[in-house]
Nucleic acid binder design. Sequence first.
DNA 1: ACATATTTTTAGATTAGTCTAAATATTTAT
DNA 2: ATAAATATTTAGACTAATCTAAAAATATGT
Lengths: 234, 234
Amino acid sequence: MLYIKCIFGGVKKTMTRSEENYIKSIYHLDKVESAMVSTNAIAEEMQTKPSSVTDMVKKLSEKGMVNHKRYKGVSLTEIGRKAALSIIRKHRLWEVFLVEKLDFAWDEVHEVAEQLEHIKSDALIEKLDAHLGFPRVDPHGDPIPSKDGEFKKVIKKLLSEVEIGAEGVCVGVKDSSTPFLKFLDKNKIAINDYIKTIEKEEFDGSLYIEVNGRKVHISNQIASNLYLEIKEAE
Amino acid sequence: MLYIKCIFGGVKKTMTRSEENYIKSIYHLDKVESAMVSTNAIAEEMQTKPSSVTDMVKKLSEKGMVNHKRYKGVSLTEIGRKAALSIIRKHRLWEVFLVEKLDFAWDEVHEVAEQLEHIKSDALIEKLDAHLGFPRVDPHGDPIPSKDGEFKKVIKKLLSEVEIGAEGVCVGVKDSSTPFLKFLDKNKIAINDYIKTIEKEEFDGSLYIEVNGRKVHISNQIASNLYLEIKEAE
DNA sequence: ACATATTTTTAGATTAGTCTAAATATTTAT
DNA sequence: ATAAATATTTAGACTAATCTAAAAATATGT
């Protein structure tokens, strides 16, 4: 009775690093093709052999993290999904840290974040989240799940397409080429910055905006490569 | 020939987490009693059985990290010592991060730092060091080894005992009781802060100091519980 | 100095995560 | 529908890190 309660209540299972990586892979594959995930696909994603996958899937199934019928593929249980999102949350928060605080380039952070995501400490990740100002998205523009495993539904629009007066958090770039990212860097515009639109120059479509309170003038080309998060009400 | 060069040149051996922990334990034990380190002592420190230690010592010995003669105890080689200091450097830098940036209490950081110290990325640790302003000591006042495995020799004096006009980095506390630490917190005096002595009030020994440019008046009791790093020349 | 106690090592087993090779189930193509 | 191709699982083995129990070396006390 108590046991049942523990499992379905909020008690965390301690997962090994390998288990965590499998769960994460299964989550990502599940997203792409929303059917059952195949053994081979997991093996491919994890860079292991299918037989290793079968073993691990058996283990995860016994732990209640995945559903599995022999020869029929795998899907995450609710517990497994929560676990995956917890790891993804850590990964993405660490990526924000690496880029915003340690000045890594956005395309240099993945490998290190793959290690950092396995650090076990709830206090750490909550304090990190606060330290970073509760960012909505990681440096690639991917949304950061909340503590309890939900994504805030992010509705994003190109800056060039919002009406004047609209404001919101910059949640992504359309063009992720190096020159464009360098431009943003030079002009101190970064993902998760708060942007207000002030005025549009009609004849060339350029925009006067405020980035974290600082006034900036950007061309239409720039504006049409930046995504703004739009609030529900808008 | 090339092989030899590689070993003695700066080529890093990839160490497992367990190997790193053994090397660190041996380093700490070596510090305390500067003779050979015993198998039992390592087992005690690592919370394992002596037979496990024998196995690991054999492995580390083959990798050239420790010297070992059967039944005679263990000592670190130069390579092993460097490896130990590299791990300690990471541990202590992470501790500074946790306390200064994430607001952990100084006595809450050890467990998490034990995990973070094993993250493998040179770029990460150098960028972290810069982000933290190249701290000299960790939140416990222990010195942080440099990148190449040296300690900057820290000569420390109680703030109450330096002559007026002296300045330096606050590198430790004598009293580490909670009330004292709370006091420091409230008065925004922290380890690694830069402190200048301005004037001493003769009749009660209280001190006027500057902490990172901000003027503060502290009693003699406070001054006699804070350590300042004194430059060679002084 | 020698018997006893302690320390260290060896031998053999265990677990997690992986592998290869073989067996079995499912899917696909004719 | 059935043979061939593909996917999945099982069986058995390997490595790293650990353990227990027994053997061997060293240290200690009278």
